[in-house]
Design a protein around this nucleic acid. Structure first.
Lengths: 248, 248
DNA sequence: CGAAATCTTGAGTATAATCAAAAACGGTGG
DNA sequence: CCACCGTTTTTGATTATACTCAAGATTTCG
């Protein structure tokens, strides 16, 4: 089943629109991108390390993570993916995946054949640049995470990640002014932060005690955005957002 | 002064040739890429975080590193760049640099105007794909480093990095069978590994004591490649090398 | 309601950091 | 060629951040 989404429902189109104004041709081509939509349960691998997929997946709803596993079986989550992301777009140019992607919540994803992506890139250079740009932003986020994991202590590191997630969620319209839904367990946070669950738990308690965050269930609330940004040494520049979603 | 390099001297051309066979047109276009060649001393910033360069730099000889600095002034090196790399190629699509690049040794670099890069990408889609691919491999290396920093203990982490550097140096013809020149100080290694100099020093001593590495001056020698790979849990897949430079 | 997953707490430990200083190295100039 | 100076490497002693192990509380969801 290859479905077409209204462009307002297609987070890829919305994302490209935030970078430049689409021509009618470009928009039509994007709307006609073949996309096989799948609903995937919690905690399922979408792709695995070593795979050579012939399509890339656009997250339509839900959360996924990109991860690697060491020889000793330890997992490092290298990114959280939210609606609008294409976490395995790299497979368009790299034959073998060097990471897995797994759902953190029930997801709707759209699989787009590489053939179709190559075709649209060849025909519409601005779309090609836009997609390239998305992969460059992923890399920028990797750099920031590396800096956090390597050089920021746990308290700052966690505050920083929470800032990033909130800003990215805002940018795709999935967060209110100062809160959003994050279906991420403390174990998953710890794998993303290079810490243990126990330590993440203790630091989260400290963040709560310091009034920087509140949480009920999966809902994260930030009573004082400036204070959290400060605590996390957070500067959203590396996210390369076009609009000033970041400031809010 | 805009110079032209013989294609055999141009590491970018050599790199693209390893991915696909260049047509005469493509080769000519690459040879005619305007490139301002500069010789840069040790320990100089080529670009700084926050810059908006209008050109990208191709490393012709020498070593550079890409780095970020935290609010507390701690440095994280997020990649080592060797000849053939274009460490700020991202600036082609991202206006503001989110990292600095600095020389680790005296370098020759070629500055290529973005305009020229955009032009060649528009005219030659395979070159565009090849350059895009290079940035995707950078990202793959980021993922691997994140995994090392987050989830591998120091001994493995250092062995892993040494493996990576040797393999990459081999791939561009700058390493012999089991040794190469690495003008990287222990302080620089520690900033790349998320460790302190003191600890890097101690672990390097352990690696030497275990017969995994030898070093005289800046020369690194690996007496038993398989043993080092094993110690570093090293699998070169993430480097996405085309030829089997890795196996050697 | 009950089992599984997730979160929380406590006690003891280890890897790696910090601080401080000495030794070795590398390049420069007399 | 050697003395000298700055950088880099090495060593020692102490500390701290974060880990491990283990078990109990709470939440989630079928």
């Amino acid at each position: 089943m290859t479905l077409t989404l209204h462009s307002t429902d297609n987070p890829l189109i919305r994302k490209l629109e935030s970078i430049f104004v689409l021509t009618n041709d470009e928009r039509r081509a994007l709307e006609n991108l073949p996309m096989q939509i799948a609903v995937i349960k919690d905690d399922q691998d979408i792709v695995r390390e070593g795979d050579s997929p012939s399509r890339s997946c656009l997250i339509l709803s839900g959360f996924t993570c990109t991860y690697k596993v060491t020889a000793e079986g330890k997992r490092q989550i290298v990114s959280f993916n939210i609606p609008g992301d294409i976490p395995d777009l790299q497979s368009l140019h790299l034959k073998v995946l060097d990471n897995g992607i797994s759902t953190l919540s029930p997801c709707r994803v759209g699989f787009i054949p590489h053939e179709a992506l190559r075709d649209i890139c060849a025909r519409y250079p601005r779309i090609a640049s836009g997609l390239w740009r998305e992969t460059l932003i992923d890399a920028a986020i990797f750099r920031e995470w590396m800096t956090s994991i390597g050089r920021r202590e746990a308290y700052i590191r966690i505050a920083h990640l929470l800032c990033e997630l909130l800003v990215r969620m805002k940018a795709v319209g999935l967060a209110e002014e100062h809160s959003c839904d994050l279906p991420i367990t403390q174990a998953e946070f710890s794998d993303a932060l290079g810490l243990t669950t126990v330590h993440v738990n203790r630091v989260l308690q400290a963040l709560r005690a310091d009034g920087l965050i509140q949480s009920k269930g999966t809902r994260l609330s930030v009573p004082d955005w400036n204070k959290l940004m400060e605590a996390g040494e957070f500067d959203p520049g590396y996210l390369h957002l076009v609009q000033e979603d970041a400031a809010a």
